[in-house]
Design a protein around this nucleic acid. Sequence first.
DNA 1: CTGCACGCCGATCTTAATTTCCAAGGGGGC
DNA 2: GCCCCCTTGGAAATTAAGATCGGCGTGCAG
Lengths: 221, 221
Amino acid sequence: MVPEARADRPTAAEPHAPSRPAGQRSARMPRDERRAQLLAAAQEVFVANGYHGAAMDEIAETAHVSKPVLYQHFPSKRDLYLALLESHLASLTELMLGALNSTTDNDERVQAVMRAYFHFIANDDQAHRLVFESDLINDPDVSSRLETFNRTFADAIARVIAEDTKLPHLEAELLGRGLAGMAQVSARYWLETDGNLDLNVASDLIYRLAWRGISRFPKES
Amino acid sequence: MVPEARADRPTAAEPHAPSRPAGQRSARMPRDERRAQLLAAAQEVFVANGYHGAAMDEIAETAHVSKPVLYQHFPSKRDLYLALLESHLASLTELMLGALNSTTDNDERVQAVMRAYFHFIANDDQAHRLVFESDLINDPDVSSRLETFNRTFADAIARVIAEDTKLPHLEAELLGRGLAGMAQVSARYWLETDGNLDLNVASDLIYRLAWRGISRFPKES
DNA sequence: CTGCACGCCGATCTTAATTTCCAAGGGGGC
DNA sequence: GCCCCCTTGGAAATTAAGATCGGCGTGCAG
């Protein structure tokens, strides 16, 4: 462990002796393609170990690339993570809004959203882990991006609720947050018991729970 | 900021010159009391900065104690965190089971649980942050402890659901997880908008959403 | 043919945070 | 009243991970 203990240290005149035996060097690659590969490697490592547990060394190794290459594409580990987070949340937002606009019937809307949510969670890149089990929540940019997504999603739900129940905005928003949370937590639980319950069966259970909860609200006050 | 900038550095012959001017040294204290004080300081720092953002230096400083004292009570930062997590989850579990047993009417049960949950979130030690916004979720002990709590809580809810709806166990469990998630997420949102919505009003909204969602389930199949 | 430019890598630097070492001092037992 | 032991804290060691430095070689343009 002591630095100067290396027996075969090269002579001072020759500090860098490459001596690469064979094709260890990774093939040259267009910049964009390399970037995409690095993102994929990072995704894999972050999902497996979390942000803090992931080492840049391991990400580079996973991509069969040396660390400096990684830093030529992303200025820091944090930036790398933020790029992935942004990408996943953008596509999740698109998915949700797409499901919301897929019909004008509120009942079907809730069902469609729930299915889309379950599909996102079931996606095999495990993006949901990086997003919803982030261990970088204390970072202002991360929590702010997550809050933006949550607000967008909950607002969309709250509009449906408000239309259906005439509840005040603030209260509809609270219910929207609650339903979004229900979707997230139940979908993640479902994923862990996969094989035992079909995606559509599970998401329909939650959809019905949500819809029945909502749909009888207006009659009282 | 440069370390060697200290003008009054002691001579080399005297590496440790305490020179404590006055009562800087913290008072001796019974072991249990000291431990409690350290836990309180750690709670404060963990809540403010998260696990990874919290430094043992800062915890010691907050407790007006030197680091070795901290290590005499807790072998590591991780153990310190686990002690707090365990304590909070134990009392939350107790709260939840107490609310569940406070009545035999399922409707009132759901209401009581929801209120208890909101009270826990509103508690001013901000324990919920340490528990539900942990940035140590990748630690096996942490995630295992959290999963134990979630299972306990969801199981209790699932039993109510199963009794009320005759749904199969697995599906009742899914709904239980979903409702637990709804409680958690909506309560945390409510806390951020505090002042605008009374605790009982908010928790009753969520309780009604949950109960209506559940209560009409049996009529179909 | 030759030079240049781009992308790649080994090796090292730097920083930061946890954990430990060792001398000093005050309170309780005899 | 005195001594011993236990507790305290300043300072340092260790480790680990993020970030960087400087040269190499291949392929294309002139």
